[in-house]
């Protein structure tokens, strides 16, 4: 047997920052970004309906739904609409971000999962098509009975029409300047059991969906709102301190290391496993400070509680975090 130096498990380079490997115009005001790990390694797995947090070089964090192919383990694709009046998220993506740049990534997380059903009705408005795109692909794979109603201002502003063409007349493309407002009652039909209705798009569309589905069986309708929780302070790019309440030490976490690594360096062992924020093993209780959650485990409410974090990937929004270690 040859003597080899046992390496520690490679840390999740795929987690902290990804490289922009593609930037393409899809429609008026909409472009797609392709993201990959600088190492070319696998990215974290995802399911249709998931979004990632993009932590842009200007310090802003914005959510974008994954709209690529989950069978491609090394690439994420997101579609970004240029918001008029943008304070810097979509404007930065459109105007500044270049192929080759690095961006921070959190998640993927899924608040909009595709649940099992034999029949689906999808309604997308504008950029709301992004989470729906992988859903229809999946519904097709599962052999489900599905249809998509897709609205937008003008045909030229509607992304992914070429990809959707493959599904033939399961997809109804209804630009407003040609057809007027979407005919939701006509598309959905009478309330009935056994159908899951998914919708994503601007607030007025979602409100109309809720009205139209008011008499459907409970849990028939699932919607995703592209409204960010704006509560959080921006992610810190600068170093931060982690105080260990039980041990009584303080560790400085610089941008190039994870909290887990920083803890290990001073001899604090926190058990971990996946090191990508998906398994939950490294959960650590937070006593003070607001974590910058980058895991794929906590849902929105759990994140707001700020009472625990996954130290293999999550960082800090505040200058100082106090952990129960």
């Amino acid at each position: 047997m040859t003597a080899t130096t046992p390496a520690r498990a490679p840390l999740a380079d795929a987690v902290a920052s990804l490289r922009v490997t593609g930037k393409q115009v899809q429609a008026d005001g909409v472009l797609t970004l392709e993201l990959a790990a600088p190492s070319g390694n696998r990215l974290r797995d995802w399911t249709p309906g998931s979004h990632i947090d993009l932590i842009l070089p200007n310090g802003l964090t914005r959510q974008y739904s994954l709209c690529g192919n989950r069978w491609d383990a090394t690439t994420y694709r997101v579609g970004v609409l240029l918001e008029p009046g943008s304070r810097g998220g979509s404007a930065y993506v459109h105007e500044q971000l270049q192929v080759g740049d690095l961006v921070g990534v959190g998640g993927p997380r899924n608040n909009f999962p595709l649940v099992p059903s034999e029949q689906y009705l999808f309604v997308a408005g504008g950029i709301g098509i992004t989470p729906i795109l992988p859903m229809v692909h999946q519904a097709e794979l599962l052999g489900a009975d599905w249809r998509l109603l897709y609205g937008g201002r003008r045909r030229s502003s509607m992304a992914f029409l070429d990809e959707l063409a493959a599904y033939g007349d399961r997809v109804l493309v209804r630009p407003e300047d040609e057809y007027g407002l979407l005919d939701l009652p006509g598309f959905l039909g009478a309330p009935r059991d056994g159908v899951r209705v998914y919708s994503c798009g601007p607030a007025p569309l979602l409100a109309a969906m809720e009205r139209t589905c008011a008499y459907w069986p409970p849990h028939s309708l699932r919607v995703e709102r592209f409204v960010a929780d704006d509560a959080g302070a921006p992610a810190r790019i600068a170093p931060f301190e982690v105080e260990l309440a039980r041990t009584g030490t303080t560790v400085t976490v610089t941008p190039d290391v994870t909290v887990l690594e920083a803890l290990n360096r001073v001899g604090i062992e926190v058990l971990s496993s996946c090191r990508r924020g998906v398994c939950g093993t490294c959960e650590t209780t937070v006593l003070a400070g607001r974590p910058d959650h980058r895991d794929a485990l906590l849902d929105d409410d759990e994140r707001q509680a700020d009472d625990c974090m996954y130290v293999c990937v999550s960082r800090s929004r505040d200058e100082r975090l106090v952990l129960d270690l």
Binding site: D45, T47, R70, N110, L114, P116, L141, L142
Partner: peptide
């Protein structure tokens, strides 16, 4: 396998 694995796993 995915996609059938997704919902029960979640």
């Amino acid at each position: 396998d995915p996609p059938r694995h997704d919902a029960p796993r979640r």
